[in-house]
Design a protein around this nucleic acid. Structure first.
Length: 265
DNA sequence: ATGGTCGACTCTCGA
């Protein structure tokens, strides 16, 4: 049997509900992690997801951010934010953690950073440090952990259309790539890249770039990072571009990974 | 060519 998980920055769940529900019906995943839901908790469409067979945990705020985890299996120990004494309200709507089928799921919407000379960029770098501290404090790399979401970093030159052009971009600058790498070194593998060494695979296409998808001018910012035991259980991973052809697509698309769940609880 | 387009919400910001 297999277990599948996906991540999607929906850029407003309200505006993208048609895409999320259609995708869930057609793709049949076990777990979907959402970012940028931009919806407050009292308006979250929990019942609609329940009718499709999905439980959900979520934390949102007005206009910005917001994360949710949808699951066919029961969700335990849902928590939001780092709980490290540094949490802003903003952090709580950017980081969700829970336990599903014995797996630890960490869903993040990492701060974008605005520009490399803005304070928010320092905050972004610090965010990755705090994530590493969180993993070191709460977990071990021999556990089955999935860290996924919009990480707002293209890890390597092949993850952007033009590495020279983006050298000073907040999602590709060497400092932010090093910050991501530091977290990865704790014990994560980029499971999409493991199955797809080829260039030209992106999860994000800027609305402002004309015909970006057609010209394949994109970024790989949405990731599914897994610990070693899950790397061994992984069967495949892919970027699902089809929803980009549906009505009113998000600027991001779905990234999916599948595992052999024979050893999951 | 330093623009462009979305979404949420007040008109401008964040991405």
């Amino acid at each position: 049997m297999s277990f599948s998980i996906a991540t999607f920055n929906c850029n407003s769940l309200r505006a993208r509900m048609h895409i999320v529900t259609r995708w869930l019906k057609e793709r049949d995943v076990d777990v979907l992690c959402l970012q940028e839901t931009k919806i407050q908790d009292d308006a979250f469409p929990e019942e609609e997801f329940r009718r499709l067979g999905y439980e959900s945990v979520y934390k949102g705020q007005k206009s910005y951010n917001g994360v949710a985890v949808l699951s066919r299996h029961s969700i335990d120990d849902a928590q939001f934010g780092f709980n490290d004494g540094e949490d802003l309200d903003d952090d709580v709507t950017r980081l969700a953690r829970c336990r599903i089928k014995g797996l630890l799921i960490v869903n993040t919407y990492v701060p974008q950073g605005k520009s490399v000379i803005h304070d928010d960029f320092q905050r972004k770098l610090r965010w990755f440090e705090r994530l590493r501290e969180l993993f070191a404090r709460k977990y071990r790399p021999d556990q089955k952990i999935i860290w996924c979401g919009d990480l707002n970093v293209a890890p390597e030159p092949i993850d952007v259309h033009d590495p020279d052009l983006y050298a000073n971009h907040v999602c590709f600058h060497e400092a932010v790539r090093a910050a991501l790498k530091r977290v990865m070194e704790w014990g994560f593998v980029d499971i999409f890249r493991k199955f797809h060494p080829e260039p030209g695979q992106y999860s994000f296409y800027d609305y402002r770039t004309p015909r970006a998808v057609k010209r394949n001018i994109g970024w790989r910012l949405d990731h599914i990072m897994v610990t070693r035991p899950l790397e061994e259980a992984a069967k495949d991973a892919f970027i699902d571009l089809e929803p980009r052809l549906w009505e009113r697509p998000s600027d991001h698309t779905f990234v999916v990974a599948r595992f052999d769940d024979a050893h999951f609880s």
